[in-house]
Nucleic acid binder design. Structure first.
Lengths: 136, 136
DNA sequence: TTTAAATCCTATAGGTATAGTAGGATTTAA
DNA sequence: TTAAATCCTACTATACCTATAGGATTTAAA
């Protein structure tokens, strides 16, 4: 299960992507139309900005805009920023690798190989899908 | 990320599957060899028993055994029992469906379609893999 | 110059799930 | 009778999620 943070973040990115390049979109507008808690969404937008997906303009008439063309933003990047690793165990994560405390060797771990397959099947989807694909 | 419960549960099933049919395997042995907290594993084994994967024998010389041939136990069943839904959002779950509070319509939800693709790619892996495949 | 609108930032709280632990009840082979 | 094993209930500690609160800062426009 993905977190609401991830779900909200994707919805917000798609919403912003529907607007013209550099046209600012306010958090309050996104929150209203997408049924998201405004303050919570604020924090999510900050995260997406720090990750480089969004730019912002402060003050009256300000808001957020996409910094990259939507067709260039792969969902795998978005997921890693919002949700974390694509892999379901740290020991098969490409970007967030960690050794398991309980496994003496990954080569002989029964779970390991299954998780690699799941990771790769998810990566295939997330690598070929972009924000532009989610804009209807 | 899957829970340790799921990881431990899979390892335990695979461990039991390596033994002869109806030969009992003790929780303490699995816990020792797989580096799992014995009491925690106890609870997991109970879950797997109630789900029909394992049978048990109480008392001295007792333990757990597989109730079904390992090549008949699909990983998708195991995952659903231990981890819950395969889908990453309830609104695309086949076995644990729930409507989203925030979405007025699933047809127009940008997240929905991506999550269906992720679900199906995971299902493809989990449907074709069995416990027997994880036994080396 | 003032005001309102907007992002930005920190701290905190409440709820829930995870990963156990504790202690005993029950069953069974030897 | 004893020891070994599953079975069962209840509890705890920690971390994470989902916000909320309150303000600081910046900016356009009146």
């Amino acid at each position: 299960m993905i977190s609401k943070k991830t779900k909200y973040g994707i919805k917000a990115l798609v919403y912003v992507a529907k607007h013209k390049h550099k046209e600012t979109v306010q958090v309050s507008l996104i929150a209203d139309t997408q049924n998201i808690s405004p303050k919570y969404l604020e924090a999510i937008m900050l995260t997406l900005k720090k990750a480089g997906f969004l730019g912002s303009k402060k003050g009256k008439g300000g808001g957020y805009y996409l910094r990259r063309p939507p067709e260039d933003i792969k969902m795998v990047e978005v997921m890693r920023v919002l949700e974390g690793p694509v892999a379901m165990v740290p020991c098969v994560s490409l970007n967030f690798y960690e050794k398991c405390d309980d496994c003496p060797s990954e080569d002989f771990c029964s779970v390991n190989r299954l998780m690699i397959q799941l990771r790769d099947s998810s990566l295939a989807v997330l690598n070929k899908t972009t924000i532009a694909d989610l804009v209807v």
